[in-house]
Computed example of a mutant assay.
Amino acid sequence: MAGVKHFDTQAGAPPYKNLFHTVSIVPPNTSLAFISTQWAADPATGNLVEGTEGDVYKQSKVLWGHIVGILKELGAEMKDIVHRTVNFIEFDEEKGKAAVMGCMDAIPDEWKPDALSSSLKYNGIKHFHAPGIVYAVELIVAVPNRK
């Protein structure tokens, strides 16, 4: 079965710094999983992981670790992410790099070529639900139907 097709169109704004893509098409016989906001939560307590407060890189590494687990549980990989929404308290070049580096350090090596394939939406928000959170991600994933 062909996977999600990611590409850029001639029309419209180009992707920021040629990262990610402007369009993703989901193949037939695929279900969509909408993964709610993931952040650097300690699964045992529901609190922000100690030592990550205010640190985009550390929070990215934790939350992408969570996402790896979710994707594996669904039978999916990075290449199956159709769209991601990233949320930052504030954004600049360094924070963007820290988020990408945390992601890359958390995902399996074989998934890295597809890490920046999906379409992307960026949100700058005023605050998260708990102090110290500076980065969070929501995903739409194409999950192959299991027979």
Rank of each mutant, 00 (worst) to 15 (best):
A41Q: 08
V23H: 09
D42T: 08
I81Q: 04
L63G: 00
T22C: 06
L71E: 04
N18Q: 08
T52Q: 04
G54M: 10
K97Q: 15
F20K: 08
K97S: 14
Y57E: 03
C103V: 03
P28V: 07
V56D: 04
I70M: 07
V23A: 05
T45D: 13
V49D: 01
T85N: 10
G54T: 11
K95S: 14
L19R: 13
G54H: 07
H83G: 01
E77K: 15
H66G: 02
D92F: 00
M101H: 08
K72V: 00
V62H: 01
L71F: 12
E77S: 15
P14S: 13
S24C: 05
V49Y: 01
S36A: 14
R84M: 13
D42S: 08
V100W: 03
N87G: 02
I89N: 10
L63N: 06
T52S: 13
G46H: 12
Y57G: 03
Q38D: 03
P27E: 10
H21C: 10
L32S: 12
V68T: 12
V23T: 13
G69R: 02
V86I: 11
G69F: 02
F88W: 12
T37F: 00
L63C: 08
R84H: 09
F20S: 06
I81V: 15
E77N: 12
E50S: 14
E90M: 09
G69A: 04
A76R: 10
V82F: 03
F20R: 11
Q38V: 12
I89T: 15
V68E: 09
W64C: 00
P14F: 05
K97W: 08
I25M: 10
L71K: 05
T22G: 15
K58T: 02
E73D: 09
F34I: 14
V82R: 11
V23F: 03
V86N: 06
V68M: 09
G65S: 13
H83W: 03
G102P: 01
T45M: 10
K17V: 02
P27M: 10
A41C: 09
N18L: 01
K61E: 12
L19H: 07
V86S: 11
Y16M: 08
V100A: 14
I35L: 15
G96A: 13
M101E: 15
L74P: 02
V86Y: 00
T22M: 07
L71R: 06
L19W: 07
C103D: 05
E73C: 01
F20E: 05
D92P: 00
D92T: 09
G69E: 07
R84V: 02
A33N: 09
P15N: 06
A98I: 12
P14Q: 13
D42G: 06
F34T: 07
L74Y: 14
F20T: 05
M101K: 15
S36P: 04
I70C: 03
V26K: 06
